[in-house]
Design a binder for these strands. Structure first.
Length: 498
RNA sequence: GCCCCCAUCGUCUAGAGGACUAGGACAGCGGCCUUUCAAGCCGUCAACAGGGAUUCGAAUUCCCUUGGGGGCACCA
């Protein structure tokens, strides 16, 4: 294969950027980047009725988020434009006319009602549904007569009645079908817009596409496309049909399975590098053990040959795990930048972020290895940013302790912590911060045996008092970041609760 | 209903006739570490859908069955 790689992602702007579609874009992009080829973004807006405002923008946003860039497209231009199919109508019309002249296509005047009736009959008689070719051999006069009645025809392809059509799929090998199982599909709709089949073939040829990489659901319409390539005298590209992403019930992943827009995953706090890595691993693998791969590693190692054939379930648990791994890999600055927008969405955290960024930067390292999503970070850090610690007072009572013992422990801690500060302040003017984790540990650890408690018991009482939770980042670090004032206040508040 | 396709642990997968006692990862379970929660480390459970055939030898090739999926629009 010496022709340069030119691949395309051709979404139709009929909705949100579905993860399945984005993954298709990714495979195309990976091949382009791996082989030094080009990725073309082409918008297939030929369905006027289903067109959704803002869909193109959302698709681009999703791609951008993942770092999937394209070389030609509606926004960046290119030598093969325009890149909206709605702006290429003339091309399709010409192709259709040519096919009619050649005798490979014909006008069909059947009404939607008739077609529906016909199909209903076929289903009833347990026949395979398909156009009955009523208009296939209409004479010029018969056409003119219907034309005169004001009927707007569609153009249908004159599918050969016999023979076979096959091709060699990069992933599936030889795919052959009997032409008799194919009906005379529509090329041009009555509104003048092309169907997917026509537009695709015309554009993929015009744009010199080398590989058509798309989902498995297209496999059965590929023979039709081949027939079109042949009739038009075009050299067909290589076809690569990849398996689909399935929902937990093994059906094609769809809205009813929950989040399916790539932007939903962004909003739920997944990192783009996680999504890219994870999506690549659905239906593709490098070897028997490599799983964590950066964008560059994916590009370097990608190959069509390693795409599998089996549909794969989208496994949220593994996604969560992988996101946790990527979160932990972030530097402090990267983590801060990544989390910022999510913190901003929270009233309390947002306020603090604006007024005291340094405090936020001190808090974040404490939760970085504990969070699996960026949204989780907000939850995990909540007690750092609010003074309203609403918790069940019963949580304060330590294991095997009663109210009195808990009270005693808190009071003792309060006193010692107070001493600690005084001590540090009066003793020389050391640069030691008065309330750092080490000093706190130095004071609190010995306190436990004095109270006849296990360290765990004392610490858990303090943890609840200071964070309002039984599970939190390490106590001393947490207290140090919270600062002396907040800690003393919260301990006092806890004493009052008892 | 018709056409096409697929089939390894619960899930994602490695495997292209002998290297398979079937490997890795997530999840689960157990343990270590430990002030909690995580993280980390160690260990453990767990699969070739079934049946034939070919072969000295089959997860790997062929056939059938079963199960699953996709397609069958003036949607893409």
């Amino acid at each position: 294969m010496t022709t340069p790689v030119r691949v395309r992602f051709a979404p139709s702007p009929t909705g949100y950027p579905h993860v399945g579609n984005i993954r298709t874009a990714m495979f195309n992009w990976l091949l382009a980047r791996h082989s030094g080829g080009k990725l073309i973004l082409r918008i297939e807006d030929t369905d006027v009725a289903r067109k959704v405002e803002g869909a193109v923008k959302a698709i681009m946003e999703g791609l951008n988020w993942l770092g999937i860039d394209w070389d030609e497209g509606p926004d960046v231009g290119g030598d093969y434009g325009p890149y909206y199919q709605s702006e290429r109508l003339e091309l399709y019309k010409k192709a259709a006319e040519r096919l009619i002249e050649q005798g490979d296509a014909y006008y069909c005047y059947c009404s939607p009602e008739r077609l529906e009736e016909m199909r209903a009959g076929q289903v009833k008689r347990k026949e395979p549904p398909g156009y009955d070719r009523l208009c296939r051999d209409l004479t010029r006069d018969e056409c003119a007569r219907r034309e005169a009645e004001g009927i707007k025809p569609v153009v249908r392809f004159k599918t050969p009645l016999e023979g076979q059509t096959g091709y060699n799929d990069v992933i599936w090998g030889n795919v052959v079908v009997n032409n008799s199982t194919l009906d005379d599909f529509v090329l041009l709709k009555s509104d003048g817009y092309p169907t997917y089949h026509l537009a695709n073939v015309v554009d993929d040829h015009a744009m010199e596409i080398s590989h058509v990489i798309r989902a498995e659901e297209w496999i059965s319409s590929t023979p039709r496309h081949l027939l079109l390539y042949r009739a038009l005298g075009f050299e067909p590209p290589r076809f690569v049909h990849h398996p689909m992403i399935l929902g937990p019930d093994r059906a094609k992943l769809s809205k009813r399975h929950g989040a399916v827009s790539i932007l939903d995953y962004r909003d739920m706090g997944y990192l783009p590098q996680t999504m890219l890595n994870f999506l690549a691993l659905i239906g593709w693998s490098l070897d028997d053990k490599t799983e964590m791969m950066s964008k560059q590693e994916l590009i370097d190692n990608f190959s069509l040959e390693r795409i599998g054939k089996t549909g794969a379930i989208f496994n949220r648990e593994k996604l969560d795990w992988m996101n946790g791994v990527y979160i932990r890999k972030l530097t402090a600055d990267e983590f801060f930048d990544a989390v910022q927008p999510y913190l901003m969405d929270d009233l309390d955290a947002g306020k603090v972020l604006i007024s005291d960024e340094e405090y936020v930067r001190a808090v974040l390292p404490l939760v970085q290895e504990r969070a699996r999503t960026l949204v989780e970070v907000v939850e995990l850090t909540r007690f750092f940013f609010t003074e309203d610690l609403s918790y069940d007072s019963a949580l304060l009572i330590g294991k095997n302790m009663d109210k009195a013992a808990t009270f005693e422990a808190l009071e003792a801690a309060q006193e010692d912590l107070g001493k600690l500060v005084v001590l540090q302040e009066s003793a020389t003017r050391e640069t030691l911060p008065a309330f750092d984790a080490d000093s706190l540990e130095g004071v609190l650890r010995p306190l436990a045996p004095e109270l006849d408690l296990k360290t765990g018991q004392l610490f858990s009482v303090l943890r609840v008092a200071v964070t309002g939770r039984t599970a939190a980042p390490p106590l001393f670090d947490t207290m140090a970041v919270l600062g002396r004032e907040r800690c003393m206040q919260r301990i006092a508040a806890a004493l009052k609760r008892l």
